[in-house]
Design a protein around this nucleic acid. Structure first.
Lengths: 210, 210
DNA sequence: CTGTCATTTGTCAATTCATGACAGTTGACA
DNA sequence: TGTCAACTGTCATGAATTGACAAATGACAG
């Protein structure tokens, strides 16, 4: 409790080797998070993080391809989770309703690990290179959504720009809502905000701009 | 002609000093573009670009804060141009119509320097760190649009998420269309594609998902 | 024209991210 | 227990930035 790694609950497979590896990884994540929070992302070197855990700098980079990655240790699982969320949407739901359901499900995760998310948001807000990573992940989400909703729209994702457009809109909506939620210190109710946002989109951005 | 810097036409102010500076900058941009196109962004060092122009590596970084910036030498002007485009929109136009006009105006610039844009797109497509820069610029655009359209929507940009949402949607639409246009090799007609995209947005993403 | 001043550059040095190579350790498993 | 594969540490290297300081040079007054 209190650790960042706690939210990345992996069904740690059997072996001692695996367990140790996971432990090292967790330690790196937690140490990085603590140090970054204290002094900011740019003022903590990878070497320092590694040292504070008792491994070599080289090992740090074996666990994380880039220094930024240690801030998003759950990127992989998050993506496959989205994939899964979209996959199980009942086909009888309309596009917007289906999306609402998926997004609300996603928002639950944020609520669950609110403190970590907020602290991470702080870091991201003050560090350009981290913002970048977020954006890259969003792009993956867009692709994921686009593939998932193209058949739902009876459109060919390759030739019609609408699936990609819709997917981008949806992810953008989530980003904007999440941004507001984070800035509000996690006070707002994400499902409600998502409803508002999606309703606004569904209305054609207020129809005629009045 | 043929040079990238040609599109960054600055009313070079009088002095010899200014002229020389601009010249150095242009040379760096052109050399960088040529080298990157030949061997890829990651396989050309800043030192090499500098050397090929006859200045020191340190000087390169005095002109460009980061190696990526040399690919987007016109970032500053582009933003103020958007600002200006939005500022002069006739207030009687609806949100979507006004936006359409601004986006079409932007798309003209892309048509004018098609080759450069396409070549740049190639580079960006194959280089993650460049994609990032694009995204950061888009975020600036979003903020710009949000401020501009909030009064047009009679909403307070700080308390209502809809202006930011609408702005994000618009910029996203532009990104998707631009992406398609670039992938089509500059064949498609951007104004037409923008019309389609905006119509789709205005319809609430196809209303009910059929 | 000439001397000063401010700007621009070059040189040097240092830090940090990131990666490849190679050898030593240590779990996994027959 | 012994072999093998997976991990790790050590060393070395390349490249991106960035700060400090001195040399070069355009701008401009006198």
């Amino acid at each position: 409790m209190g650790t960042v790694s706690a939210m990345t609950a992996i069904a740690s497979s059997s072996g001692l080797r695996e367990r140790k590896k996971q432990e090292t990884r967790d330690q790196l994540v937690d140490a990085a998070f603590r140090l970054f929070s204290e002094r900011g992302f740019d003022d903590v070197s990878a070497a320092e993080i590694a040292a504070s855990v008792g491994v070599s700098e080289r090992t740090f980079f074996r666990y994380f391809a880039a220094k930024e990655d240690v801030i998003f240790p759950d990127a992989g699982e998050k993506l496959s989770h989205i994939r899964q969320l979209v996959a199980v949407l009942p086909p009888e739901l309309s596009l917007v309703d289906g999306v609402r359901r998926a997004l609300v499900a996603m928002s639950e995760e944020y609520k669950e690990s609110k403190e970590v998310m907020l602290q991470r948001a702080q870091l991201v807000a003050m560090t350009p290179s981290l913002r970048v990573h977020i954006m890259q992940r969003e792009q993956e989400w867009v692709e994921e959504f686009a593939i998932a909703i193209a058949p739902r729209m009876n459109l060919d994702q390759a030739n019609d720009l609408r699936p990609e457009l819709a997917a981008a809109m949806i992810v953008t909506a989530f980003r904007v809502v999440l941004g507001r939620w984070l800035r509000s210190g996690g006070e707002g109710d994400m499902p409600t905000m998502l409803d508002q946002a999606l309703a606004f989109i569904g209305s054609g951005l207020g129809a005629d701009g009045t």
